Amino acid sequence: MPASELRAEDIAARLSAAGLTPRVEQHRQVTSIEAEVPESLSAELWREVLEAVAEADRFGLLANSLNGRTLWAAVSTTAPATGDVRGPGRQQ
């Protein structure tokens, strides 16, 4: 199993352990993980959830009054191009 799939599965497992119900989808260049976040999530569980999605290549939170809050994470399934390997804070 590719390392990207293992990372995505680990993130999903950690979200599940925090009480969320993750949805994992394979796409051509990324594996996406999404989960609805309840209003009643404690500060301790928020820390666990944020630590889990911090392992992804990208993550975020979509929130609105109609659909509530959806946490998302994306793990790249392809290696970055040579110009993209500088990492956070090193973009020019």
Rank of each mutant, 00 (worst) to 15 (best):
residue 55 E to D: 08
residue 40 S to L: 02
residue 85 V to C: 07
residue 4 S to I: 00
residue 47 R to G: 02
residue 6 L to H: 11
residue 49 V to K: 00
residue 43 A to T: 15
residue 54 A to G: 11
residue 18 A to I: 02
residue 14 R to G: 01
residue 37 V to E: 02
residue 73 A to M: 08
residue 92 Q to L: 08
residue 2 P to A: 03
residue 77 T to P: 05
residue 31 T to R: 01
residue 74 A to T: 06
residue 83 G to I: 01
residue 46 W to Q: 13
residue 21 T to L: 10
residue 81 A to L: 14
residue 22 P to Q: 06
residue 63 A to N: 09
residue 23 R to S: 11
residue 76 S to I: 00
residue 77 T to D: 11
residue 7 R to Q: 12
residue 53 V to H: 09
residue 65 S to R: 15
residue 18 A to S: 05
residue 68 G to A: 10
residue 36 E to V: 15
residue 79 A to L: 05
residue 41 L to E: 05
residue 92 Q to N: 09
residue 77 T to W: 01
residue 37 V to W: 04
residue 48 E to R: 15
residue 22 P to L: 06
residue 10 D to L: 15
residue 37 V to L: 12
residue 50 L to D: 08
residue 85 V to L: 13
residue 26 Q to I: 11
residue 5 E to L: 12
residue 53 V to L: 04
residue 35 A to C: 08
residue 78 T to G: 03
residue 66 L to P: 02
residue 38 P to S: 11
residue 69 R to W: 04
residue 28 R to T: 15
residue 53 V to G: 03
residue 81 A to Q: 07
residue 6 L to N: 11
residue 60 G to C: 09
residue 85 V to S: 00
residue 75 V to W: 09
residue 46 W to V: 12
residue 3 A to G: 07
residue 70 T to M: 10
residue 18 A to F: 03
residue 63 A to W: 12
residue 1 M to K: 12
residue 21 T to Y: 08
residue 3 A to T: 02
residue 75 V to P: 01
residue 79 A to I: 02
residue 13 A to D: 09
residue 69 R to K: 14
residue 36 E to G: 07
residue 27 H to W: 00
residue 60 G to A: 08
residue 80 P to G: 10
residue 19 G to M: 03
residue 46 W to N: 10
residue 74 A to V: 06
residue 16 S to F: 03
residue 58 R to I: 08
residue 90 R to H: 14
residue 38 P to C: 07
residue 40 S to W: 05
residue 43 A to N: 11
residue 21 T to R: 13
residue 76 S to L: 12
residue 11 I to Y: 01
residue 55 E to M: 14
residue 53 V to A: 03
residue 76 S to P: 10
residue 70 T to E: 09
residue 76 S to C: 10
residue 82 T to V: 13
residue 90 R to E: 12
residue 52 A to D: 05
residue 87 G to L: 07
residue 46 W to P: 04
residue 55 E to A: 09
residue 84 D to V: 00
residue 27 H to L: 15
residue 24 V to S: 05
residue 48 E to Y: 09
residue 43 A to K: 11
residue 5 E to W: 14
residue 5 E to C: 07
residue 61 L to Y: 02
residue 8 A to C: 06
residue 20 L to C: 04
residue 78 T to E: 14
residue 71 L to T: 09
residue 53 V to D: 01
residue 79 A to C: 06
residue 38 P to M: 05
residue 45 L to A: 15
residue 58 R to F: 12
residue 3 A to E: 14
residue 85 V to A: 02
residue 85 V to P: 02
residue 26 Q to T: 10
residue 68 G to Y: 08
residue 46 W to G: 05
residue 75 V to M: 06
residue 24 V to P: 03
residue 48 E to A: 14
residue 43 A to I: 13
residue 11 I to W: 02
residue 7 R to W: 07
residue 66 L to F: 08
residue 38 P to Y: 05
residue 17 A to M: 01
residue 34 E to A: 11
residue 3 A to N: 10
residue 29 Q to P: 01
residue 66 L to D: 13
residue 47 R to W: 08
residue 32 S to E: 13
residue 50 L to H: 10
residue 78 T to F: 12
residue 63 A to G: 13
residue 8 A to V: 00
residue 47 R to C: 07
residue 17 A to G: 07
residue 8 A to R: 02
residue 29 Q to T: 14
residue 76 S to F: 14
residue 17 A to C: 04
residue 20 L to T: 03
residue 61 L to V: 09
residue 85 V to I: 14
residue 8 A to S: 11
residue 21 T to I: 09
residue 36 E to I: 13
residue 19 G to A: 06
residue 57 D to Q: 10
residue 69 R to I: 14
residue 86 R to V: 10
residue 42 S to Y: 01
residue 48 E to F: 03
residue 27 H to K: 13
residue 63 A to H: 11
